[in-house]
Computed example of a mutant assay.
Amino acid sequence: MAWIVLIISGMLEAVWATALGKSEGFSKLGPTVVFGVALVASMAGLAWAMRTLPIGTAYAVWVGIGAALTVSYAMVTGTEAVSLLKVLLLLGLIGCIVGLKLAH
Rank of each mutant, 00 (worst) to 15 (best):
M1L: 07
W3I: 09
I4N: 05
V5R: 01
L6M: 07
G10F: 00
M11F: 11
E13D: 12
E13H: 05
A14F: 01
A17M: 10
T18C: 00
T18A: 07
A19S: 07
L20C: 04
K22E: 14
S23R: 03
S23N: 06
G25A: 11
G25W: 07
S27E: 14
K28I: 15
L29F: 14
G30M: 14
V33P: 04
F35P: 05
G36F: 12
A38G: 08
A38E: 07
L39S: 13
V40M: 10
S42Q: 05
M43C: 09
M43L: 13
A44H: 00
R51L: 06
L53K: 07
P54L: 11
V63Y: 04
A67F: 06
A67S: 12
A68E: 01
A68P: 01
L69M: 08
V71Y: 01
V71E: 02
Y73L: 12
M75Y: 00
V76W: 08
T79L: 09
A81E: 13
A81C: 08
A81R: 13
V82M: 10
L84V: 15
K86I: 03
L88I: 13
L88M: 13
L89M: 14
L89I: 14
L90S: 04
L91N: 09
L93D: 02
L93N: 03
I94W: 00
G95I: 06
I97C: 03
V98L: 05
G99L: 05
H104I: 15
H104A: 15
